[in-house]
């Protein structure tokens, strides 16, 4: 059984079918790419997979459990975490605290124990600090843990968002254009980091990328969306040589 199974997923905004009849399977440990021209419906797919939008058609399962239409909070707790195309950090909090918010549900001390500084507060806070710093290290952010998130350079903000998502210990990580706004050097480095995350955390990653060359380098399989519909699907090398796909991109 695949980790994520998407079956005929679709959503309508008024008259617009933003995503129509999307079916795909992602196996555990896979690095999977969702590509397509601007406005194809990629982010909308993420919004359905994370409960921001309830699909109007079809559904999806994670580890066999149907999750379509559940709330974002529930879906995160079931094991899907994401980043956003337009970065959404907790800008007025430090880099470290951004990750620690991601660790929130992994700890159990209650409001009373927190306010009165009972032993479990100290123990679990220390565990959170340690874990958060480990995650920051993966992205080379450990030197900036006390920096306000809003004061980080753009590329580092994107990395921090991935670290925060990973803090929730997901089964499936959704990355929405993680390289957007980065220069070629930063992009190459990020791709390396993503592969490292997949290997080191045994993570399954679904990645949206606008730039086809980029995904070619790291994704094993691809789904190409165009005007909300699947244009091509399969092994990366085959999909990227598909004349339909080439036409959709050139015609953009």
């Amino acid at each position: 059984m695949a980790l994520l199974e998407v079956n005929g997923l679709g959503i309508k905004f008024g008259g617009l079918r933003a995503v129509d009849d999307l079916t795909m399977k992602i196996n555990k440990g896979q690095l999977y790419g969702l590509i397509g021209p601007n406005g194809a419906g990629k982010t909308t797919v993420f919004n359905m997979l994370t409960g921001v939008y309830a699909p109007t058609n079809g559904g999806f399962t994670l580890d066999g459990e149907a999750l379509a239409g559940r709330s974002p909070i529930e879906i995160n707790r079931k094991g899907i975490a994401r980043t956003f195309q337009n970065i959404r950090l907790f800008s007025g909090m430090t880099v470290l605290d951004n990750v620690k918010v991601g660790l929130h549900n992994s700890k159990k001390y209650n409001v009373f124990e927190g306010i009165f500084r009972l032993p479990r507060y100290f123990r679990e806070e220390a565990e959170m600090d340690e874990r958060a710093e480990e995650l920051l290290k993966v992205f080379g952010l450990e030197g900036e843990k006390e920096t306000m998130a809003r004061n980080l350079p753009y590329g580092r903000q994107r990395k921090l968002e991935i670290a925060r998502a990973l803090a929730t210990d997901p089964k499936l990580l959704l990355l929405d254009e993680p390289a957007a706004g980065m220069n070629p050097n930063e992009t190459a480095e990020l791709m390396k980091t993503i592969r490292y995350v997949r290997d080191e955390f045994d993570m399954t990653i679904l990645l949206i990328e606008h730039d086809m060359k980029l995904v070619g380098g790291i994704c094993e399989e691809l789904t190409v969306l165009n005007f909300g519909q699947v244009l091509a699907q399969g092994k990366t090398s085959e999909v990227l040589n598909d004349p339909e796909v080439i036409k959709a991109y050139l015609g953009e």
Binding site: S71, N76, R88
Partner: peptide, 16 residues
């Protein structure tokens, strides 16, 4: 504080 800074992000990481 996370809710103040970004509700959608807070929900996406499971904050009630």
């Amino acid at each position: 504080t996370a809710i103040r800074d970004n509700v959608i992000a807070a929900e996406s990481i499971g904050i009630n």
